[in-house]
Design a protein around this nucleic acid. Structure first.
Lengths: 222, 222
DNA sequence: ATATGTGAATTGATTCACAGCG
DNA sequence: CGCTGTGAATCAATTCACATAT
C-alpha cells in the first residue's frame, strides 16, 4: 500500500484527506506565527479537531515527514504540505461574472495574500466591460480563450446567475481551463479531467437548517 | 435498520445524504419549473450526478415516497424533502461582520428568495453601526443577546476577519444561537449542540490546486 | 411490465494497537 | 522512553440484486 517515492505522486487519496491537509497547513501557519518550531501529531490533531491517528494516516499517504520520539518540524511539514497541495507557486485565476459577488471577490485581499493571482475578469454585459476591479479590467466573455493563451489562466471563479452557470462552465472549459470554483447554487457537468468545486452557502444554510430542525424533532437522544 | 415512522424522525443520517437531499430538492425545483410532474429515481440521479441506487437509499432513510412501477410525483417529493430539511418556514438569520462580504450578503436577493429572512446585522465598528444594508440597520455586537430574544434569531452568517472568528463565535453561541455559517478561513470550536458549517472558498481553491497539480504529476493514469 | 424499496455484499474510510526508530 | 508510521480490525457508506407493489 506504499505510494510513490520522495516525490509523493499519490493516487486514490480520499478527498476528505485532502481537505484535512488544507486544515493542517492552516494550523501550521498559525503555529509558525506564534513561534512554535516543533509539533506532535497530538497537538496538530487537537488544533485541527481530528484524531492523532487521522493526522498520521493522512500524512502517511504521501510519505514520512516526522521524527520518531520528537514529532514534526513546523516549517518543514508546512513546506511538504504546500508541495503536496501544489501551493509552491501562485495560480493564475480569473473571475467570470462581475456582479456583486464577482466584484467583492476581485477586491478581496485574501486572494493574493494566499498566493492566488487575479489575472482577469469577464462578463457578458457590455456595460461592465472596461470597468476596473481588484487591479484588472473587465473583459467580454468572448475573450476568454485569448486570455487563457495570453495570461496562462488556470482557475476560474464562476460567479454568474444560476441560469447562466452551465453555459458559462461550457465556455470556460472550451477555453481550456481545467479548474472551476462554482459559486452558483446548481450542479454543473464537466468532462473528465476538469475539476469543479462548489462554494455554496445556500446549501450550507440548508445543512444548518436540517440540523436545527432535526435536533428539535429528536429533542432527547436515543 | 428501519427508521422513524411517517414523521421521519431519523437519526444517524450520513451528512453526505443530507447534502444530496439538498441537491435532489434543487433538481425537483428545476423539473417543476419545466412543468414535469413525475420523475424516476433514474432521471433524478442523472440530474443530480449520482446513481439511482443512491437516490433510493437516501430517500429510504426517511420513508417511502414513490409508487412502484411509476416513480415519484415531483411536487409531493419536493414537499417531503422540504419537510425533512426543515424548510417549511423561513429561518431568521443575521450577519455578523459587516465588511465587504457581509454587505454583499445582506444585499443578496437569494437569501429571501430561498426563504431565509435577514432580521439583523452586527459589527464591532461604531462607524458601521447605523448603516443600512439589505433592509436592516447595523447594530453593535453588544446587542446580539437582545436581538436573539427580540427577533428570534436562529442562524448567524459569520463574516468577520480570521483573527476575530473564534471570539465572534463564542459571542454568538453565548447569545443563544445554535447555527453558524463560518465564512472565515479557520476552524472554530463550538459546544455540543451547535452546528458550524464552513463556507470556505480559499479551501475550495486549494482543493482545485491539488487536483490540477496532482493531475499534472500523474499525467498518464495507472 | 416497470420502477420502487431494501437486505446482503462490497467497497472505502477511520480507528486501533503496536512495531520500529530516534 | 516517546512519538511516529503502518498493517489489521472495525466501522460506515455505497453498490448491487431482487423481491414487491402497482
Amino acid at each position: 500500500m506504499q505510494r510513490g517515492g520522495a516525490r509523493g505522486t499519490a493516487r486514490d487519496i480520499p478527498s476528505a484527506t485532502v481537505g484535512r491537509l488544507i486544515t493542517y497547513l492552516r494550523v501550521l501557519n498559525g503555529l509558525e506565527a506564534r513561534g512554535v518550531e516543533r509539533v506532535s501529531s497530538d497537538l496538530l490533531a487537537d488544533e485541527a479537531h481530528v484524531s492523532a491517528f487521522q493526522v498520521r494516516k493522512d500524512l502517511a499517504y504521501f510519505g514520512t515527514f516526522g521524527t520518531r520520539g520528537t514529532g514534526y518540524t513546523v516549517s518543514s511539514l508546512k513546506g511538504e504540505l504546500k508541495r503536496i497541495l501544489g501551493l509552491t507557486r501562485p495560480w493564475r485565476v480569473a473571475i467570470v461574472g462581475m456582479g456583486r459577488l464577482g466584484q467583492a471577490l476581485a477586491d478581496y485581499p485574501g486572494l493574493s495574500e494566499y498566493d492566488f493571482d487575479l489575472v482577469a475578469a469577464f462578463d457578458v454585459d457590455e456595460r461592465k466591460v472596461g470597468q476596473r476591479h481588484g487591479g484588472v479590467v473587465v473583459r467580454h466573455m468572448g475573450e476568454l480563450g485569448a486570455a487563457v493563451a495570453e495570461l496562462g489562466l488556470e482557475i476560474v471563479l464562476l460567479t454568474v446567475p444560476v441560469g447562466a452557470a452551465q453555459a458559462a462552465v461550457d465556455a470556460v472549459v472550451a477555453a481550456g481551463v481545467r479548474g472551476i470554483l462554482n459559486f452558483a447554487p446548481t450542479v454543473v457537468s464537466v468532462p473528465e479531467g476538469v475539476k469543479v468545486e462548489p462554494v455554496d452557502f445556500l446549501a450550507a444554510l440548508k445543512r444548518v437548517s436540517y440540523f436545527l430542525h432535526e435536533g428539535a424533532l429528536v429533542e432527547d437522544r436515543g
